[in-house]
Computed example of a mutant assay.
Amino acid sequence: MSDDEDEIVDSDTSLFDGSFDAIDSLGFGPLVPTETERSLMERVRQELKHELKQGYKEKIVHIREEILRKRRAGKLPGDTTSFLKAWWQSHSKWPYPTEEDKAKLVHETGLQLKQINNWIINQRKRNWHSNRSTSLKSKRKR
């Protein structure tokens, strides 16, 4: 290669080596994009952003629906809860429903048997066992 060809290769290499300190053709310092180039870069950036959003939009919607479904899953309707609490109050000394009680609760609330069983089990864990242990402690102090 001639010296001129070496200079061309060197200048081409410096433009593509990843450094942003390239000197423009007139030797005035770093290259600064023109307004048109900035506009083009912004438009390309916006298009890429839009493509990424479209690509992940379905996944994001699915995840959002799953989160909302899980959030709603643990909540029973207020009137159903009121009915179950009324049963709980009337059976607070021994909150173990018979099969007939369970069938009546299923019919009255519209819940599944498993939901009724879980609600009663959770109520006993949250309220009944703690109330019983508190009353037993107070009896021991006497």
Rank of each mutant, 00 (worst) to 15 (best):
M1H: 05
M1P: 01
D4Y: 05
E5N: 05
E5S: 05
D6F: 12
D6A: 13
E7G: 05
V9G: 00
S11Y: 01
S11K: 05
S11W: 04
D12S: 08
T13I: 07
L15I: 14
L15M: 14
F16C: 11
F16Y: 11
D17H: 01
D17A: 03
S19I: 11
S19N: 10
A22K: 01
A22T: 06
A22R: 01
I23S: 08
G27N: 02
F28H: 08
F28E: 09
F28V: 13
P30S: 08
L31E: 04
L31D: 03
L31W: 06
L31Q: 04
L31S: 05
V32A: 11
V32W: 09
V32L: 14
V32C: 11
T34M: 04
T36Y: 10
E37N: 00
E37S: 04
R38Y: 03
S39L: 11
S39G: 03
S39F: 05
M41P: 00
M41Q: 02
R43S: 13
V44K: 03
V44S: 05
V44Y: 04
Q46V: 14
E47A: 03
E47Y: 00
L48M: 05
K49W: 06
K49Q: 07
K49R: 05
H50P: 00
E51L: 13
E51N: 07
L52F: 13
K53T: 13
K53S: 09
G55T: 15
G55R: 13
Y56A: 15
K57C: 12
E58W: 06
K59W: 10
K59Y: 10
I60V: 14
I60H: 01
V61I: 12
I63T: 12
E65W: 03
E65H: 07
E65L: 04
E65V: 06
E66S: 11
I67E: 03
I67C: 06
K70G: 06
K70R: 07
R71H: 02
R72E: 08
R72D: 08
G74M: 03
G74P: 01
K75E: 12
P77T: 09
P77R: 10
D79N: 07
D79S: 07
D79Q: 10
S82K: 01
K85L: 13
A86T: 15
A86F: 15
W88K: 02
W88P: 00
S90K: 01
S92T: 13
S92C: 09
W94M: 03
P97H: 01
T98I: 14
E99Q: 08
E99P: 00
E99S: 09
E100T: 12
D101M: 03
K104F: 11
K104I: 15
K104L: 14
L105C: 01
T109G: 03
L111K: 02
L111T: 07
L111A: 04
Q112I: 10
K114S: 11
K114H: 10
Q115E: 15
I116D: 00
N117L: 15
N118Y: 10
N118C: 13
W119I: 07
I120R: 00
I121C: 12
I121G: 09
N122W: 06
N122L: 13
K125R: 12
N127F: 14
N127Y: 15
R132G: 04
S133N: 08
S133W: 09
T134V: 14
T134M: 12
T134S: 11
S135P: 01
S135C: 07
S135T: 12
L136C: 14
K137N: 08
S138W: 07
K139P: 03
K139H: 08
K139M: 13
K139S: 09
R140M: 14
R140D: 12
R140F: 12
K141D: 14
